[in-house]
Amino acid sequence: MTTEPQRTIAVFGAYGHTGRFVVARLRERGWRPRLCGRDPAKLTQAAAAWPDSETCVARIDDPASLDAALAGCAAVLNCAGPFSDTTAPLIEAALRARIPYLDTAAEQQPVLAAFERYDAAARAAGIAVVPAMAFYGGLGDLLATAAMGDWDRADAVEVAVVLDGWHPTAGTRITGERNTAKRLVIERGALAELPSPPPQRDWAFPPPFGAQAVAAVPMSEIALLSRHLNIGSAMAYLDRGSLRDVRDPLTPAPVAADASGRSAQVFAIEASVRRDGQVRRLGAAGRDIYAVTAPLLVEAMERVLDGRCRGVGVRAAGDVFDAADFLAALAPDPSRLYLSGDPGDE
């Protein structure tokens, strides 16, 4: 980077539900978002909320349009799912532009494919590619990594999420319909298919949730954990009420409850790490799983751009960042993400 860093950031999917939170966060932090997407009408509508924003029509099947969208940018943030469609074209465009790429993928397969297909190219280009830097994926990975602390191995990692209700966006529904790949967990130190039927158990969350019935719903955090932690097994759970919500086609989309666009939804997420009978747990709680992705993603981008990261290539959040420091930086955030628990022994 030059002594005067470029302040323009390409946001692909800027007019989507999560993308709008990301654009707002970038502007709060002094960056200039370039609103990118395939739909000119939606870009125009989004730009009306931010009259001084650039827009750029770009399609994943048109590499030249992607190159134009990324020209002169410091980084690209991909908020457009399904990520099975968008990840590869945008990583390839970032490689051509030699700028960092970060996304918000919850799906496991595009995240694993990013590691397998693009790590060598990203290292050769000298850029960081950080997939799944979102509530599902990066946050669970950071919590588990911070909880693991000075342990060089763990017998088991579990991540559990509870919501007071899940009103899925249109993008969430489309991704769910398209994501037909087998879900993966970690067993005996390697990725393996989720058992059928998926395991269920009770999880003791902090107040106001308390004990909740949860079912195994592994998402991209498993893909991230598999790339950098020495663990025997890993599983991820979601409370069964939220699982019913997201599977019910009649559950409505989220509704804004304040001027920022956040819904009233509240959440808790915990990571539990076990070794030789000892257990360490670390958790976070806050409001609106879509909105809270914005501070996670933008914090990650800023750390990549200012050098507070560990090298280049395709990297998991807990591997490329100092997990405990990253989480501590978000604790007083206006998103109301805050830490609970202690990475010491339970």
Rank of each mutant, 00 (worst) to 15 (best):
M1E: 09
T2F: 09
T2E: 10
T3Y: 11
I9Q: 01
V11Q: 02
A14Y: 02
V22K: 03
R25F: 14
W31V: 03
R32H: 15
P33F: 10
R34Y: 15
C36R: 05
L43E: 13
A46P: 14
A47P: 15
P51C: 09
S53Q: 07
T55A: 07
T55H: 07
V57F: 06
A69N: 04
A71G: 10
G72I: 09
L77M: 08
C79Y: 01
G81Q: 03
D85V: 11
D85I: 08
T86W: 00
A97S: 14
R98H: 13
I99R: 02
P100R: 00
Y101H: 01
L102I: 01
A114C: 05
A120S: 12
V129P: 00
V130L: 08
A132K: 01
G140L: 08
G140H: 05
D141P: 03
A154S: 11
A156C: 12
A156D: 14
E158Y: 13
E158W: 13
I174P: 03
T175Y: 04
G176W: 04
G176K: 03
T180C: 03
R183Y: 04
L191D: 03
A192T: 05
P199D: 09
P199G: 08
R201Y: 11
W203Q: 11
F205G: 11
F209I: 13
F209H: 15
V214C: 13
A215G: 15
V217H: 13
S220Q: 02
A223K: 01
L224F: 04
L225D: 01
L229E: 02
M235E: 04
R244L: 04
D245T: 04
D245P: 06
V246Q: 11
L250R: 07
P252K: 06
P252V: 02
P252N: 04
A253P: 10
A257T: 06
A257V: 05
G261P: 05
G261S: 05
R262F: 07
V266N: 14
F267T: 11
I269R: 12
E270Y: 07
G277Y: 12
R281S: 12
A285W: 14
A285F: 13
A291S: 13
L297D: 01
E299V: 01
V304K: 00
G307E: 05
R310H: 14
V312P: 08
A316G: 08
G318L: 04
D319S: 10
V320C: 07
F321R: 01
A324P: 06
F326T: 01
D333P: 06
D333G: 08
P334H: 12
L339T: 06
G341M: 09
G341A: 10
G341R: 13
P343Y: 11
E346D: 15
